[in-house]
Design a protein around this nucleic acid. Structure first.
Lengths: 234, 234
DNA sequence: TCAAAAGTGTTCTGCATACACCCATGT
DNA sequence: ACATGGGTGTATGCAGAACACTTTTGA
């Protein structure tokens, strides 16, 4: 006999952020099934019976992007009584940060996916997402706010940049996420004082202006500093 | 027929913090039923079918304390496969802040409660909680860390103090939560510069030293400032 | 040679820190 | 009178903010 207390369902949803050197982007899927057929939605899936929350998130991300090392943080759980037409579904929302150049949004990935209620996947400007399925607009807003907070006291911005990046790319990333401008010299002074970037010795190629130096984020050094009480702050 | 996808259960758990002018406290219940009979545990309950997450939290807090205006924030959802012996139960953890002097932990409240799996409720020093039921030690640690973060950039500390409080009480509260000392003059300078306290004109009574002034937190003023971009920071 | 973005220092201001003595009350 | 915690100001150092010109490359 099924216990009357065990009749809910639980899903995970991912707000996957990317950065294309100009704008902050979010990866949405277009639903190919009801409910909300043809609506854009956050990628997600039900949590399987023998699967932890993080495992479910990793699976959704792997199926969608082919990548298995995407930075992810849990944000908030949504469970309003009427949020899902088929029953009581709680969804545990997450934000994920990926290097946008690393993945191919191949139809292959999407069609192979157990999350194959998705007919299409596409990057959208975070400024220009329309009405999403379910309560996904609310979820998106919550995760976006969480990103804005995180980026100011954790070095998560680097998760959105390629392995090697210029200081201008980094500055523009912060400007786009925080919706404010920084002074170039002061920004560089600040970044420089952290001593967390490695000068790769390489330069940009084939740009029609003075080529910029390429840097890497020194994650090991950051982790050591953090263990001894250091607080990242932009 | 019960859909195979609807066979999970969801609960809320509350890490209820209080402050007794010396230590940071957490309100735990002693379980009177299995599983984990006689273990101390976080107060919580299953989310009812027609009830939102926040409603469930409010209900748990009302049943336990008789109060209905307790500051609460959702923290994190836990759902490891084996975390509950009776089935797949996800729990949405919250932290709550209350003025410790406002409530009576009457057996009445506890026995009237639908959460009457509780045989006893008691404030514990946050430093001295032993092994709790389920994965509640992990949940507690997560909520404590969240409190430490929050208290530094939101004026939530005042939720733990009586309506009127002295500057020394306030300073000690921060020292206890953040586990560091502040210089008295600098702390007061900082608090004073925020202009968020109202001098009530009243003083402490019957203390065997110079009586301290009593202040109130100006919540309305804070909310106005916040809307126009102000960021609280200690 | 022109356009475009990279790169670079100094001054000023304000906030965090460090620090020691007198005051009001109860016993 | 003494013990207890309440209450107050100044000097110093450091970090954030404002600000303009030269350099390197491709077209």
């Amino acid at each position: 006999m099924v216990n009357k207390n065990f009749n809910y369902s639980v899903s995970v949803d991912c707000v996957i952020f990317g950065y294309d050197d100009t704008n902050l982007k979010v990866l949405l899927i277009k639903r190919g099934v009801n409910p909300y057929n043809n609506y854009w939605a956050l990628p997600g899936d039900l949590v399987h019976p023998k699967e932890g929350i993080d495992d479910a998130v990793d699976r959704v991300l792997l199926d969608l992007t082919g990548l298995d090392n995407i930075y992810t943080q849990q944000v908030k759980t949504f469970g309003d009584v009427g949020r899902h037409p088929l029953g009581r579904v709680f969804t545990i929302s997450h934000y994920s940060l990926m290097k946008i150049d690393q993945h191919e949004l191949s139809p292959l990935n999407i069609n192979n996916s157990p999350s194959s209620y998705a007919a299409e996947a596409k990057w959208h400007d975070v400024q220009r997402i329309g009405e999403l399925a379910f309560d996904h607009n609310k979820i998106f807003a919550s995760c976006k706010a969480h990103l804005v907070q995180s980026v100011q006291n954790k070095p998560v911005g680097f998760e959105l940049l390629p392995e090697m990046f210029t200081l201008s790319q980094l500055q523009n990333l912060y400007e786009v996420i925080l919706e404010r401008k920084f002074d170039k010299r002061n920004f560089r002074k600040k970044i420089n004082s952290m001593k967390l970037l490695i000068d790769t010795g390489k330069n940009q190629k084939s740009v029609s202006h003075r080529p910029a130096k390429l840097f890497q984020f020194d994650k090991d050094k950051y982790l050591k500093l953090k263990r001894s009480g250091y607080n990242f702050e932009i």
